[in-house]
Nucleic acid binder design. Structure first.
Lengths: 208, 208
DNA sequence: TTTCATTTGTTGCGATTGCAACACTTGAAA
DNA sequence: TTTCAAGTGTTGCAATCGCAACAAATGAAA
């Protein structure tokens, strides 16, 4: 996501009364995903996790957010079963607003077109992310999912060497495969000479 | 997607010079998905298919569009390999525009807030669709994918009886599973008393 | 009405995957 | 520094899936 755009958006919208900011202490709930609404949250400072509680009460970290990350109900695949919360990992400052409220409130303002432009740009990035996720999940083998994901990382890094930006447990969740099966397949890719790996540092050795 | 909103949007934006309309003859190309741009297409009349050509040249129908459907590069998971085109199935009338051009052009107009509101609403629906697709693809068995999909159809139909709105070949593609394996699993669901089926008419018999 | 391409329906088989189980490593809090 | 929860790495095994192959049904065009 473009950090400059997020900062500019914050600058433009903060003066409006229905754009809220608050500070959350470590461990506290940033946002509940109980009801599907059109709220958008911007994490200004700190770190937070999107946590899923499944039907058995077990909890999983679904996503991790840092400075200037953006989240909200409409950007997420909230599965049918289970509840979601965003929990502060450290002390957090978050700014949030309802999309429709913001639109109403800023409509007559001089900066409205710029605000809209920024929102549309942010939405485009989110569409891109979701579309990539779908394209990746449409691959039918763990190997293809890994290679699709790795190639994307390399492409966005302009290099064949990159660091996996999350834990392997989280990666397995993102790829929606069993973690142990994924580790086995990573090992296979190493053994067969497709990748070179050192913990989270990976180098692609082929042109697939 | 809300048809009323699409119609209202068309009404509002058609007068602008950089909103284009054209008629396409059956079999002709409505839009090429070669370059990723921010164009949005609204099919006003007729039917069209999103076709994928894979690396071997084989073609697949990826999606089917009818009156007042909406498509465009940003809404799609364009996989790495292969090319896409939208081909007219019958004579079509299509209206299209570049999102940024439209925003620029209408920014100073009285109807700008309403146009923006409609666009945001349309985007929200698309996010919902993509998020559902991801939630469904995150299921690891064909059975779970089918039940997730069927339950959604039933929910949106307010009934446990519904019609699968596409061919089983297309459904297998949407669920991203092998067609024969999917047919086998549908048969299993019938045999085990989870569903009742007559061609495309399905009745859910359980409360999962 | 006939033709023919497309879709549906079915099965066997081998490959891949999820699951369970366990040891080892890591890193943050006490 | 110690403790302990969380993540990593590995393996056997059974379940599921994709693939290939083919027959039957369907439906649109000639």
């Amino acid at each position: 996501m473009n950090e400059k755009e997020i900062l500019r958006l914050l600058e433009l919208i903060k003066p409006f009364p229905r754009v809220f900011s608050k500070t959350i202490r470590k461990g506290d709930v940033v946002a509940d995903y109980l009801e599907k609404r059109d709220r958008i949250f911007i994490l200004e400072e700190g770190e937070a996790d999107l946590i899923k509680f499944d039907t058995k009460g077990a909890k999983y970290i679904q996503e991790h957010y840092t400075d200037h990350d953006l989240f909200g109900e409409i950007f997420h695949a909230i599965s049918v079963s289970g509840e979601y919360s965003v929990i502060a990992d450290t002390r957090c400052t978050v700014t949030y607003f309802s999309l429709s409220d913001l639109s109403d409130e800023t409509a007559s303002h001089t900066n409205y077109p710029e605000i809209v432009g920024l929102l549309l740009s942010i939405f485009s990035s989110k569409f891109e992310q979701l579309n990539f996720h779908i394209a990746m999940l449409s691959k039918r083998t763990i190997r293809d999912r890994l290679l699709t994901y790795f190639n994307d990382l390399a492409r966005r890094n302009y290099q064949r060497v990159f660091y996996v930006p999350m834990s392997y447990t989280q990666l397995a969740d993102y790829l929606s495969v069993d973690r142990s099966a994924m580790m086995r397949e990573i090992k296979n890719l190493e053994d067969e000479g497709f990748i070179d790996r050192n913990k989270y540092r990976i180098r692609l050795l082929t042109n697939i």
